[in-house]
């Protein structure tokens, strides 16, 4: 089946305005948007610029607007979207560098603002050969939000990001909750301080588009609401701050009998 593909083109060296290039593409069943783009680049127009890496929905590089909805190009089959016209544009609410490529520096800067790593005062004293204990329930409370691949789709879907350039955005705020909720972490107060800033969490009004569009099922809108609940409970003194989970010695396993011992190290 042949379809028409319209690709948004932008080259600041040539013009400050974008335009659309049109191509014809022979589509077969199972062909993804990324497959189609690669075919077009190899056979029709080598100047089309787009970003991709893993081709399997893990790296998040190929996020773009596909018929006005943000998707991963490698994760979207063309025939599931259209049988006539496919329109490809760069992600909304991100600055456009060229054709389908967006600048993610502001996005990552906002991500850094919320300190996306475990914070604890005793980090230097931890015995790194051990483990920090965590119950399955504690893990489940944040695991869903840790699958974020930083593709920027949630920001493209968010109506608040459409008008507020400084807004931290669903990705950063969801990650603020993900790390604050982690029982190994003790940096909740610092993240709450960062998230409660003027363009922070209070600008989210649960439009939910970020959760709908997320290609990994992270549900950032839910994380943001849970984070806000936690902030309210903390400010009312109804939720006590807990110390971070403590260390556990490495588990001593009793090996089964009849299993041969490993060879002696060759380098001493």
């Amino acid at each position: 089946m042949k379809i028409k593909v319209k690709v948004s083109r932008f080259d600041p060296d040539k013009s400050p305005e974008r335009y659309f290039s049109e191509y014809e593409l022979e589509v077969s069943e199972g062909m993804t948007v990324l497959d189609g783009l690669i075919w077009l680049k190899e056979n029709a127009d080598p100047t089309i610029s787009f970003r991709y890496s893993c081709r399997m929905g893990v790296c998040g590089s190929c996020a773009m607007m596909i018929n006005s909805y943000p998707h991963l190009a490698c994760h979207t089959q063309i025939l599931e979207i259209t049988k006539s016209v496919l329109v490809l544009e760069p992600l909304c609410n991100h600055a456009n560098v060229r054709d389908l490529i967006c600048d993610f520096s502001a996005f990552f800067e906002k991500h850094r603002t919320i300190k996306p790593h475990l914070l604890r005062e005793d980090a230097e004293k931890l015995d790194l050969t051990g483990e920090i204990s965590q119950t399955p329930q504690e893990l489940e409370s944040y695991l869903q939000f840790s699958y974020c691949i930083k593709c920027g789709i949630c920001v493209a879907a968010c109506p608040t990001c459409a008008t507020d350039k400084e807004y931290l955005g669903p990705q950063a705020l969801a990650q603020a909750y993900r790390y604050t909720q982690d029982s190994r972490d003790a940096g909740g107060d610092k993240r709450i301080e960062a998230a409660a800033e003027g363009h922070g969490i209070h600008h989210c009004h649960y439009a939910g588009a970020c959760s709908e569009a997320c290609p990994k099922g992270v549900d950032p809108a839910f994380a943001i609401q849970l984070f806000r609940k936690q902030m309210v409970l903390r400010s009312l003194g109804l939720k006590e701050t807990r110390p971070p989970a403590g260390e556990m010695p490495p588990m001593t396993l009793n090996p089964k009998p009849n299993i041969p011992k490993p060879p002696e190290p060759t380098i001493k």
């Binding site: 932008f10 600041p12 400050p16 974008r18 006005s68 909805y69 760069p90 992600l91 909304c92 609410n93 991100h94 600055a95 456009n96 560098v97 967006c102 600048d103 879907a157 109506p159 990001c161 459409a162 008008t163 350039k165 649960y206 439009a207 939910g208 588009a209 709908e212 569009a213």
Partner: peptide, 22 residues
């Protein structure tokens, strides 16, 4: 050299195939 690609106020109204909540 970057093109601002934010949807603006129009993006509140027209958003594409999203659910009721948006």
């Amino acid at each position: 050299r970057l093109r601002d690609n934010r949807l603006g106020i129009a993006g509140w109204g027209y958003a594409g195939r999203y659910g009721f909540e948006r």
